[in-house]
Design a protein around this nucleic acid. Structure first.
Lengths: 208, 208
DNA sequence: ACTTGTATCAGCCAAAAGGTGGAGAGACCA
DNA sequence: TGGTCTCTCCACCTTTTGGCTGATACAAGT
């Protein structure tokens, strides 16, 4: 039996110690490091080269989870990354999978689910919480209504109340392109205005 | 030295074990029970009569945190209840304090903060995370920023994505009046656009 | 009686957003 | 190679929104 080394990335101290306590009960799993931000995660991964990285997507300050995942994948593609977060937002799921996440767990997952995800990840298996899986399944059934990564990115910024101009600046694209993306997003979400899009996004997608 | 008995209420297993691990390092604090829902919390409180209840506001199903706090206070007013949650929503803070919470901690609080809150709570002291305190302070300082009932009604409909015209029809007022109310709402929320108002309302005020 | 707060309405103007109909570049796949 | 996606950009036009100023009416508290 090989021991699986795990790196925990979460800006909440309690969540980290909770995971550590839970994973500590498993003889074949060892937490080798902790990080509370994306930047720290990169350092810690460099230092410990864990087999699995358990990462929260929402980090208070600095690099967000998605960015961190991309960097981690780039440096060590063999490393399995499991997202461990509170919400099952469509956009986040798509972006995380796109960035290279192997699994997607919600924080209310049962301990057994977490263990299974860690063990599965090192074998190249994708393990995800049921609500997440059902969302992905639905997306496969209706590919027309799935936002592209770029659109999801826009929608996410949209829910922060930015104007088209600000969106353009933030994403380094012209206002015209912003409007094009928005039109597509509206069509896919089945709404006519940005207000409705934001409402739909936050309510339906669990965005915050 | 008296040992402080604590009951943990959170629907996330990892958060519970994290808190347990953290609090376990303190000789004067003992976790005497855990619950993952409001209903369970009431039972557990009855059984263990803990000195302090650490409770998450957002519980997946059934009774929410606020309801649970009210019931707990009713049964045992001497018990100190500390809210331990992820977001510092204005509405949640007010409602929790109103329901009888002694403290309000955010999940990214440092361990020392948590210990201090538990110890302070049994002495009747209110301990809260800095962002929470600053919000409460701001509310006391600026009663001007409280929405009138009519404005709140509008804001609520706004978060459903309605246009000014639709808002007018729904509330039987002219579009001009809608615009007036909106201008007041924007000023009070400190935003310039309806998009930002919706984002602020849903995120900060806990509207869903 | 006077002030304050709330709710209602109007008009004007500038800015932002949305609709329509394109179009080119790069990736990927059959 | 041809088709399909995705992302990017443009122009033109209409609708919507927001900023500003000002007004009336009613209720409640001082």
């Amino acid at each position: 039996m090989t021991t699986i080394s795990v790196l925990l990335v979460d800006d909440h101290t309690v969540v980290r110690s909770g995971l550590k306590a839970l994973l500590g009960t498993q003889p074949d799993i060892a937490v080798v490091g902790e990080a509370s931000s994306g930047e720290e995660a990169l350092d810690a991964a460099q230092q410990h080269s864990p087999a699995v990285v358990l990462m929260d997507l929402a980090m208070g300050a600095g690099m967000d989870g998605i960015e961190a995942i991309k960097h981690l994948r780039q440096r060590n593609p063999k490393q399995a990354i499991i997202v461990f977060t509170t919400y099952d937002s469509d956009a986040d799921i798509v972006r995380a999978v796109d960035a290279g996440a192997m699994g997607y767990l919600l924080k209310d997952a049962a301990p057994e689910e977490i263990f299974a995800a860690v063990r599965g990840a090192v074998q190249g298996k994708s393990v995800m919480s049921a609500p997440v899986a059902s969302r992905l399944f639905q997306q496969l059934r209706n590919p027309d209504e799935v936002l592209t990564p770029r659109e999801a990115e826009l929608l996410s910024l949209l829910t922060e109340g930015l104007s088209n101009r600000d969106l353009g600046k933030r994403l380094f694209i012209s206002e015209a392109t912003v409007k094009t993306h928005l039109a597509h997003i509206y069509a896919k979400l089945g709404v006519e205005t940005r207000a409705a899009a934001i409402a739909t996004a936050i309510r339906r997608e669990g965005m915050r």
